[in-house]
């Protein structure tokens, strides 16, 4: 089946509609190796600005690996090697001249498990602006922190306990704190790696609403396990299987009228 998918892949390189919003991230012929093992095989697709793009697929299909390419988090893994062309606003992010620190300031990340630092809520959010030198004064910093917390819809809940530990919040709140922490750096893109997988449905709904409103100002790429989530929130969906990008297109099309049977099978729950 693997070879079949490969053939399909070659003939079905997704075509972006030029009338749509400008493309902010693009991947072209991207391979990812872990040691000698090929984890991602020749993946190409574009991500449009101010949209939510969902990456779906069975576990181990490589969707997280692709996500981590966009802000070069894979650099942290010694054995991992990425080839191909990934561009952010037209610039090759693997170009030696690119500063990975600057890149990650532009492309923020929210992880599967909420990972607030063992510091106060304020310090958690202030960490990014501080290291990047975004605030000129203490007042500035406070303003950035409060605005980020507001954007993450957390401010009202924590306004009077900003100096309490971030690890003392509930799971959903912790995840929103992590979102606020990412927003405080003022990125253009936010990568989310299954942000709701350890949350209850109510907390999930809150975060989904949040993403919906964030779309105005940010581009969001989300890896998700839940097909319902992808169909609810995303405009574009990419379906991965065994390291291949099987299908990429408008979410509606993918979920109602997928081109390939394997996509259909996954969406209908027959594989996964």
């Amino acid at each position: 089946m693997g070879s079949m998918i490969k053939i399909l892949n070659e003939t079905a390189i997704p075509v972006t509609n030029p009338i749509e919003k400008p493309c902010i991230l693009s991947a072209k012929n991207v391979d990812v190796f872990y040691g000698n093992k090929l984890a991602i095989n020749d993946v190409s697709f574009d991500i449009m600005e101010n949209q939510i793009t969902a990456l779906i697929g069975p576990s181990g299909c490589g969707k997280s690996s692709v996500l981590r390419c966009f802000n070069r988090m894979n650099d942290m893994i010694d054995a991992c090697k990425v080839t191909g062309d990934i561009r952010f606003a037209g610039q090759n992010i693997y170009d030696p001249k690119v500063d990975v620190v600057a890149l990650r300031a532009r492309i923020g990340m929210v992880f599967q498990k909420a990972n607030p630092f063992p510091k106060s809520i304020f310090e958690n959010v202030a960490y990014g602006p501080r290291i990047h030198g975004l605030a000129k004064s203490k007042g500035d910093l406070e303003e950035i922190v409060i605005s980020a917390l507001k954007k993450a819809g957390l401010y009202d809940e924590v306004a009077n306990r900003l100096d309490e530990s971030g690890t003392g919040l509930s799971g959903g709140q912790q995840q929103r704190l992590c979102i606020a922490r990412a927003l405080a750096v003022d990125p253009q893109v936010i990568l989310m790696d299954e942000p709701c997988s350890s949350l209850d449905p109510i907390a999930t709904a809150v975060i989904e609403d949040l993403m919906e409103s964030m779309k105005e100002n940010y581009t969001i790429v989300i890896v998700t396990h839940s097909m319902q989530q992808a169909s609810r929130i995303s405009q574009k969906t990419a379906f991965f299987h065994l390291g291949d990008l099987v299908e990429f297109g408008d979410t509606e099309t993918i979920f109602t009228n997928p081109e390939y049977e394997i996509t259909q099978n996954y969406i209908s729950g027959r594989i996964g």
Binding site: F88, G90, Q91, V98, D99, A102, L103, R106, Q188
Partner: peptide
């Protein structure tokens, strides 16, 4: 107008040193 620059700035240069 959002800033898309990815090259090293004064701030990041200092931090890399």
């Amino acid at each position: 107008m959002p800033d898309y620059a990815l090259n090293t700035s004064e701030n990041t240069r200092r931090r890399h040193i």
